[in-house]
């Protein structure tokens, strides 16, 4: 399966990953190889086989509706590159 350079740039942009021009051809080749590998799976007939979501049969853990976390703005803001009072501050984003 081939991956063209436009696709590489698009995927990188969607994932907000900076990709230099000279990296694009190499990434295209690598991504194509990965997709080819995954493609092999489609050779299997999985009709009627439910998707496996866990290697060991376990159920989703649920929590009760109780407030037992939060209330520590300092901790949450500790790594903020910029803050003003108790807000995170980011470069202006307006629609």
């Amino acid at each position: 399966m081939s991956v063209d350079e436009t696709t590489v740039r698009r995927v990188a942009r969607l994932a907000r990953i900076a990709v230099a021009d000279h990296e694009v051809p190499k990434l295209a080749t690598e991504l194509a190889a990965i997709l080819a590998f995954v493609e092999e799976l489609s050779e299997l007939n999985v009709e009627g086989v439910p998707p496996m979501t866990s290697v060991i049969p376990t159920a989703l853990t649920l929590r009760e509706d109780v407030v037992n976390d939060g209330e520590d703005a300092e901790k949450v803001l500790a790594n903020a590159p910029a803050r003003e009072a108790d807000f995170f501050v980011v470069p202006k984003v307006v629609e």
Binding site: D69, E71, D86
Partner: peptide, 18 residues
């Protein structure tokens, strides 16, 4: 997460690390 949904709290107080 276990943080509160209450309206009108001071900024970033009802926030867990999740």
């Amino acid at each position: 997460s276990g943080s509160s949904t209450a309206f009108g709290a001071s900024p970033n107080s009802h926030v867990s690390l999740v």
